[in-house]
Amino acid sequence: MIEIHGLVKKFGDFAALGPLGLSFGNERILTVIGASGCGKSTLLRLLAGLETPTRGQITLDGERIDGPHRRISVAFQEPRLMPWLSVAANVELAIWDWPAEARRAAVEAVLRKVSLTAFAQALPKQLSGGMAQRVGLARALVGNPRLLLLDEPFSALDPLTRVRMQDHLLEIVGDDGPNVLLITHDIEEAIVLSDRIVVLDGPPARVRRDLRIDLPRPRGRASAAFQEIKELLLADLLPDRIDAAHTVAA
């Protein structure tokens, strides 16, 4: 279980987050959505150990997180590959402290998983955007993390590649993969992928809605249930728009 208790983050006088409490672990993919600047990324950075909380704490299976943790990994919005390293060496970076033989086997296996075996020796400059993002994902997965943090990982991709990557993520995570915390702006992406969606308000970031998604997979975007959830989330994220629509209707 990942548990967040009374988490507060301030940058000087600016309160970016909290107090916030959240606990998850039973669902495979939890998505956090919210307007730009509401504090979503601050939450992700706190979970990744890249920021220190001003108050409160995060625990992973009872162990307090106070910095980068070997069982928590991150795939960022941009692939963030080291341009001087090959694809295989970039992935290997995440498990640099493993024995050499185990490293090689793990890299091979994860590159097979993301269908990039043929590009193991390629340099990042030789990859397309989607391929580079898959390398970023492979690097995040190679160490068998308990919690995988995804910070809008598909936002820079074209719509077709994005849909393909979403399917790919569901395949990779499967039933025995890590718990995933996904940050996104894309409401449809959130509904397609998630078992639970948390809507944040802010700053400072606070939970506005906590919604379990029980739709069967694969999830058709045209279904009435899908559209209903979408409208509900849109109303949370764009309250002015709904008010305006109601005013016109009245």
Binding site: A48, G49, L50, P68, R70, S73, V74, F76, E78, R80, M82, W84, L85, L93, A94, W96, D97
Partner: peptide, 24 residues
């Protein structure tokens, strides 16, 4: 952004210098 990747994977001090900062 690249330094943060190193930090997420627990590279600190001399290791961060040799694996990220020096090649960069």
């Amino acid at each position: 952004k690249l330094i943060e990747v190193g930090e997420v994977y627990r590279l600190r001090g001399a290791r961060l210098v040799t694996r990220v900062l020096l090649p960069y």
